[in-house]
């Protein structure tokens, strides 16, 4: 479905995840973070950059992988994105909802 956000029209699924990553830009990411009640800082963006880089490499994400990323540890990840961090961060990053259970 179409969604108008940050003066752009993007395609999202019924849960609000972008279905076409090429439509993503930082203004859209910022607007999505506001919807998730998160105020982005440079640390948040470093994590988003990492998630997007893994997505581009087709590497499935999990909390365990985040912990081994050398970008952010699990404790800080939860501090940055307190509610459902992997899902929330993926939504802001414009990548699909992670399918991992761990």
């Amino acid at each position: 479905m179409n969604k108008i956000i940050a003066d752009s029209t993007i395609q999202v699924n019924e849960e609000g995840y972008l279905t076409d990553f090429s439509q993503w830009n930082q203004a859209i990411g910022t607007a999505l973070s506001t919807e998730a009640n998160i105020v982005m800082t440079p640390r948040h963006w470093e994590v988003i950059d990492y998630l997007q880089a893994e997505f581009k490499k087709d590497i499935p994400l999990s909390i365990r992988k985040i912990g081994k990323s050398n970008v952010v540890d699990i404790k800080e990840f939860y501090a940055l994105f307190p509610v459902a961090p992997l899902k929330t961060a993926s939504k802001i990053a414009g990548i699909p909802k992670p399918a991992s259970c761990i």
Partner: peptide
């Protein structure tokens, strides 16, 4: 463990 961690992952 999976159930506890899965809960946290969902907020």
């Amino acid at each position: 463990f999976v159930l506890a961690n899965g809960a946290r992952m969902e907020g």
